[in-house]
Design a protein around this nucleic acid. Sequence first.
DNA 1: GTACTATATAGGAGTAAATCCTATTTGTCA
DNA 2: TGACAAATAGGATTTACTCCTATATAGTAC
Lengths: 155, 155
Amino acid sequence: MIKENYTINSAELEKKTEWFIGKCREKGLKVTPQRLAIYRELMKTDEHPSAEMMYNKLRQDYPGISLDTVNRTLITLHEMGAANIVEGSGDSKRYDCNMDEHQHFKCIKCKKIYDFHHKPFDDIKLPPNINKKFKILRKTVYLEGICDICLEENE
Amino acid sequence: MIKENYTINSAELEKKTEWFIGKCREKGLKVTPQRLAIYRELMKTDEHPSAEMMYNKLRQDYPGISLDTVNRTLITLHEMGAANIVEGSGDSKRYDCNMDEHQHFKCIKCKKIYDFHHKPFDDIKLPPNINKKFKILRKTVYLEGICDICLEENE
DNA sequence: GTACTATATAGGAGTAAATCCTATTTGTCA
DNA sequence: TGACAAATAGGATTTACTCCTATATAGTAC
Ligand SMILES: [Mn+2]
Ligand SMILES: [Mn+2]
Ligand SMILES: [Zn+2]
Ligand SMILES: [Zn+2]
């Protein structure tokens, strides 16, 4: 139910990298080292990092990379359908390239975002007439509260 | 289903103002003109305004009010249980003092937030063991897409 | 009503996140 | 291999708060 200690294996990483390269070509987007690095870095984590978190990680291997490029590229990933912006209330944008159906719990104290998957949440039916008025692009069930670690800290 | 053209009637406005004053006293918070004005202004709208939007509206009647007070007070309202911060992905915080069960649709183009109420969404059951690990404080179903007005504009 | 005090406010400074600008570089394709 | 549109770096700017502090005021005690 609640997913933990995620690490992608290298076969999967390469497979998705190939998929990503194909997707770039398909959309007429250049396959730059920065884009690849950002996408691959995002695949390696389940921490739903912000642009700043990604920037700090990436500059270890790519000292010249700019924060603007990280920001721009994360939005590009989103527009390509290669990543999601995680829902939340306030705070900085957080990114996720796990496109499998799943849901999020966000701790309002430490701001960690935890993955979980509850099948019934995938299948909730939209109100019958809402499609007549709006074009629905995304439907999410989102939980907020205090995580186990923060609960423990408070005694 | 989708709610529109909301205006609170003055009886309701006064009733909720009384409730708010009671709530302030109960929590030992002073009933200042600014607090009252901000709460009352928020009650009059279903636009889910940001602090900035509230500030611009309020300074018409309270020329001296400060943006910091608006921001602080909106957070106070949230902490008192008199308002919610609307969920969303990115963008500035948006506030809502309609505490009746309802859901939101947000247009990713114009950023408008529309209320709707779909009873089945009130009743979705949490995954069975999630309470063992996390303290769940909020559960929301949230829709995103393009609103009718923005759809029309695109031809 | 007057005095006291903790709380709240105004206004400005400071900060964090994201976006914009522009000269330079680079991936793609002919 | 060269041309060019697209992308990047790095700095400036904007946006959305948050912090600071002197002043004002709501609540209470007399
Ligand atoms: Mn996720
Ligand atoms: Mn609402
Ligand atoms: Zn936590
Ligand atoms: Zn719209």
